[in-house]
Design a protein around this nucleic acid. Structure first.
Length: 672
RNA sequence: GGCGAUGUAGCUCAGUUGGUUAGAGCAUCGGAAUCAUAAUCCGAGUGUCCGGGGUUCAAAUCCCUGCAUCGCUACCA
């Protein structure tokens, strides 16, 4: 058999937060399962990752906490490593991008591109925040997308239309740190000339017919819209210095150096093994299958920019063979939100449950083709009904039976009945299907098929009724038990990529000491001798589910630290004219979802105000109410209607509440 | 209003390129069994495959259209 060579990576987790189960479901567990499967087949595979440790968010976080970026990075690096370890996500090497080797390689990559003529130096206008005294990195600018008009676009990419944006082109930019309006300042940066890569990228993509459809469509639409030059340097203090004399104070853009982390981590791995050249065996061998596992948000960088960067290096690196991107894992139908602490953190999870449970649940419920949903109720159902009852109980009923009536020993019978033959044949048929699923990243289906083997075991056990036959036909009973232990042995192999620890335990109970390998499937065991047995999986109680739900509610209910605006003088405040007014008419505006048109009376002066409260207030409810109006706001047209002022309302995630005076006051009274 | 996704059993979903009688798990009901962690097995199902139209010998699947839900977005100043 030809031994295939794989280099598998997962997207580098960013070292400014802990690991949550959404990360695991999207980029790490699928990769770990794939790697374990390939190792089981005997293929040559290494699994490489590391933390992404550069970039503005880390330096900003460090500043906010009064620490050095290094301290932040180390803290989260350790936390992430620990979580991976607990989940048995086994990397061959887990590095970090703030290490010297990474710096060296990233700088070399930059220079190679520069020398090959793919990097342009340009002096441009950049956004600079005078309050924070820094050039604003893309992620710290927000504004309106110049292409689709969507608001809230970041400085590097619009989430609405997916286009890459030059921050300076944003309409109405704002500094996300302090909310001030940044000024434009001149600075020099280096740009990757992506348009030059369009043709080679297209050629390359023609060979990728086997990629996931959503990934391919995404890239093609990008290419069709035309690529633009991308700045690959930033004005920032924390990161990899641009290796040029004239680039004082500039670092490589984090998106440029992050994927290079896959390479530098491999180099580190080779060095640690004492064979420093070994990385070339993977990165420079065209037969290596380079596979990047990641979440859908990472697609453009791994399928457009990263391959382009790889194409124009001195050495001939392999290009990604496949980029199986996964969707997101929601929690009870809602998006994970780290800022609101609406997430299930791995380090919390392992305090309560075995990591195996999480691996099982996330594998059986993986967001392979669309977002999937996590709930503690569903988690309990899957673990109890499937893992514990169907598989765990099968093992338990078989093993206790063998212990009780056969002294823990079962031998292979001379001949098998038709039913036994069929049962085993069916299982082997499933094994082949399972292999296909693993190879094609269809973990969800693989898990289902494995459970089908366990189901067939229970069925077979019931049909052959060994508890009867053991009394008058011990050979028949023995045969039943043999077939069942065989099924369990098969499961112990094919399920090991998903549940390494539990399957090791299962094999220990069956006294199977040979190292795991897919090949073992070809050699039915001749006899089984059981060791000490115990239940494979415990069950999750209703009480635990309740506790977890309460915990989640509690932690996400805690309001995140409020961000305060810069101090102002009293004089600033006196510029504002607030008055109590009465709503005398209110109506909806056609085609507007959130807007209401109000007529208000301010001591005889009638004004028209357009307010965005239509989702929470019906026009009728407002008429006759006294509210507070910001009088001297510059009038502005909304949906073609002029708004002469702005009403005050409290804004919360559960809706908004209009501010009203505590008791009736004359209209026109000033609010101070 | 714009962009995107989704709509299949009570619930969660699977349904490959159009092709017999539309599937699985959970929940429900009935039964069997007592080796086992009250764990298993068998049986019963219930369906306007969101509605309407079209293409086709044939549509859950392709096209058009409408509706609903969700996400982002737009006006929320």
């Amino acid at each position: 058999m030809k031994r295939e060579k794989y280099l598998v990576t997962s997207a580098l987790p960013y070292a400014n937060g802990h690991l949550h189960i959404g990360h695991v479901a999207g980029a790490y567990l699928p990769a770990d399962i794939f790697v374990r499967f390939q190792k089981l087949l005997g293929n040559n595979v290494i699994y490489i990752c590391g933390t992404d440790e550069n970039g503005a968010p880390i330096s900003i976080k460090a500043e906010a906490e009064g620490k050095t970026p290094r301290e932040i990075v180390d803290y989260y690096h350790d936390s992430i490593v620990k979580s991976f370890h607990e989940l048995e996500i086994d990397f061959d090497n887990f590095s970090g991008t703030a290490r010297p080797e990474h710096t060296r390689i990233s700088q070399k990559f930059f220079l190679n591109l520069l020398n090959a003529g793919y990097v342009l130096q340009k002096t441009t206008q950049q956004l600079y925040c005078e309050h924070d005294k820094r050039f604003l990195a893309d992620r710290y600018i927000e504004g309106t997308c110049p292409y689709c008009g969507a608001k809230g676009a970041r400085g590097d990419q619009c989430d609405t239309c997916g286009k890459l944006i030059d921050a300076i082109k944003l309409i109405d930019p704002k500094c996300k740190i302090c909310g001030n309006i940044p000024v434009v300042k001149e600075t020099t940066n280096w740009y990757l000339e992506l348009p030059k890569f369009e043709k080679p990228l297209r050629e390359w993509l023609k060979t990728k017919t086997y990629w996931k459809e959503n990934v391919l469509n995404f890239i093609l639409s990008w290419l069709n819209e035309g690529l633009i030059e991308r700045s690959i340097t930033r004005d920032l203090g924390w990161g990899i210095p641009v290796p040029l004399d004239e680039a004082e104070g500039k670092v490589l853009y984090v998106w440029f150096d992050a994927p290079i982390g896959y390479l530098s981590s491999t180099v580190e791995w080779a060095k640690n093994l004492g064979t420093p050249e070994l990385w070339k065996d993977y990165w420079l061998d065209p037969n290596t299958k380079l596979i990047h596992f990641l979440g859908k948000d990472n697609i453009p960088f791994h399928t457009i920019i990263w391959p382009s960067v790889l194409m124009e290096q001195e050495e001939k690196y392999v290009l990604p063979y496949d980029v199986p991107a996964n969707e997101y894992l929601n929690i009870k139908g809602k998006k994970t939100s780290t800022s609101r602490n609406y997430a299930i953190w791995v380090r919390d999870f392992v305090k309560y449950f075995k990591p195996e449970f999480l691996r099982y649940y996330l594998a059986a419920n993986a967001p392979e083709t669309k977002d999937s949903d996590f709930s503690w109720e569903d988690f309990q159902i899957k673990v109890n009904n499937e893992l514990a009852n169907i598989l765990g109980n099968l093992a338990n009923r078989v093993f206790t039976f063998v212990k009780k009536y056969f002294n823990g020993k079962i031998e292979k019978p001379q001949n098998l009945s038709q039913l036994s033959e069929n049962t085993l044949d069916e299982a082997y048929k499933l094994v082949n299907e399972i292999k296909e699923c693993y190879a094609n990243y269809r973990v969800r289906k693989a898990v289902k098929l494995i459970m089908d083997i366990a189901r067939s075991g229970n069925k077979y056990f019931d049909e052959t009724k060994p508890w009867f036959s053991v009394k008058d036909d011990k050979a028949a009973a023995s045969e039943t038990l043999y077939v069942c232990t065989e099924l369990l042995r098969i499961i112990s192999i094919v399920f090991s990529p998903v549940l390494p620890k539990a399957m090791r335990k299962l094999r220990t109970m069956m006294d199977l000491n040979t190292p795991l390998s897919w090949n073992e499937l070809n050699n039915p065991s001749q006899k089984i001798s059981l060791g000490t047995i115990e239940p494979l999986f415990r069950k999750i109680t209703n009480k635990e589910v309740k506790e977890q739900n309460e915990l989640l509610e509690k932690q996400s209910g805690v309001a995140p630290a409020l961000e305060h605006k810069p101090e102002i003088d009293y004089d600033d405040f006196t510029k504002i004219e607030l008055r109590v007014v009465k709503v005398i008419a209110a109506e909806t505006i056609p085609k507007a979802n959130k807007l209401l048109k109000l007529k208000v009376d301010c001591a005889g002066e009638i004004r028209q105000v357009i307010a965005g409260i239509s989702q929470y207030y019906k026009p009728k409810e407002l008429v006759g109410k006294q509210i507070v109006l910001l009088m001297n706001l510059k009038p502005r047209k909304l949906m073609g209607l002029e708004s002469q002022g702005m009403i005050l309302a409290a804004n919360s995630k559960d809706g908004i509440a209009v501010v009203v005076p505590e008791k009736e006051v004359p209209e026109g009274s000033e609010v101070l």
